[in-house]
């Protein structure tokens, strides 16, 4: 273990599977919260729907005529995600903004607890098994054990997973960019600033908010689908409210309502998180730090996340990519 190892770990995590999952969910949150101002505190629910749709349809319902292959399961996952957005949105999008926050966070927990307590949905053990064989079957990388990119080394499957992850992200970024420079995006931003003003101008804000909730939810579900396929395992206790809060940290770190905000945020977030962890472990292992146990390193990471979120929102709410003119506005 040395500094090189620490950096390699940090870099590989910053662009790795976990960062991709969080990034997809955060990009959805960017549409909902960043552009439309919707306080969705239950993005994890959409992620869980994606993961569980794959797990249940591919493993639990193996051989069912309804799910002939992975691609159909992905389609179902997206449809379920739309359904969830409708269930959450129809009642709450007419209510005060903080009600959406409470209802979404509660819905996320309800969904997790239902998955956890229902054996046919995996129960407390979750779902493990070969998910996405069709996906791995079309891996175009040549048959060899490892692929080295500079200091980073990937197995053939990992290389394929990470490549596809970033291609999907690039496409969704393009989609976000195109939407947000259009009149549709302008209405969304208007709703974020003042919903009543936009209503008074003849727009059905409810309809636009619903569209934003659905679209952002689908992004999250894609993150969940990716999760199930990349990790080959779906565990109920992975889908806790804290996930969504980390997404908020990533979003605010990178800059909300910026197309590239979540990307910058996710890379920096995971780099720092892993760097701090590995660096502390390095210092402990070579005896530089004696007052810490290796088990105390995990909590330190999260203390830093919490403090980071507080300091960011207080001192730099516009994030790394923030606009100078907006900074002036915030100072008012």
């Amino acid at each position: 273990m040395d500094m090189g190892f620490v950096l390699t770990q940090a870099i590989s995590q910053a662009i790795g599977v976990t960062a991709i999952i969080y990034l997809l969910a955060t990009m959805g949150l960017n549409i909902q919260f960043g552009y439309a101002g919707l306080l969705n505190f239950g993005q994890i629910a959409f992620v869980a729907i994606g993961s569980y749709a794959i797990g249940v349809f591919i493993i639990q319902w193996q051989g069912s005529v309804f799910v002939p292959n992975l691609w159909v399961a992905i389609l179902y996952a997206i449809l379920l995600s739309v359904l969830l957005a409708l269930i959450l949105g129809v009642p709450t999008l007419r209510l005060r903004a903080d009600y959406l926050a409470i209802v979404t966070i509660a819905a996320g927990e309800i969904i997790r607890l239902i998955f956890k307590s229902t054996d046919s949905l995996g129960g407390a053990q979750g779902i493990n098994g070969k998910m996405g064989e069709e996906f791995y079957a079309i891996n175009p990388f040549p048959e060899q054990d490892r692929f080295d990119f500079g200091p980073l080394s990937y197995t053939r499957n990992d290389a394929w997973v990470v490549t596809v992850g970033w291609i999907v992200i690039a496409l969704l970024l393009l989609l976000t960019w195109a939407l947000m420079r259009s009149p549709w995006g302008r209405v969304l931003k208007g709703i974020r600033e003042d919903e009543d003003a936009v209503r008074s101008l003849g727009k059905s804000t409810y309809f636009f908010k619903m569209q934003a909730l659905i679209l952002g939810g689908i992004f999250g579900t894609l993150g969940g689908i990716f999760w199930a396929i990349a990790k080959q395992s779906v565990q109920p206790d992975s889908f806790v409210p804290a996930f969504t809060f980390f997404c908020y940290t990533i979003l605010i770190l990178g800059g909300a309502a910026r197309v590239m905000g979540p990307v910058i945020g996710a890379i920096i977030f995971w780099f720092l998180l892993v760097f701090v962890e590995q660096f502390l472990l390095l210092l402990i292992s070579n005896g530089t730090i004696t007052f810490l146990e290796p088990t105390q390193v995990g909590p330190i990471r999260f203390i830093l996340v919490g403090l980071g979120l507080m300091l960011l929102i207080i001192f730099r709410p516009q994030g790394i990519l923030g606009d100078k003119k907006e900074i002036a506005l915030d100072a008012k």
Partner: peptide, 12 residues
């Protein structure tokens, strides 16, 4: 959101 950050920091 500050209170969420605080909650995470305190808890850990």
């Amino acid at each position: 959101i500050v209170s969420i950050g605080l909650a995470i920091a305190l808890r850990y």
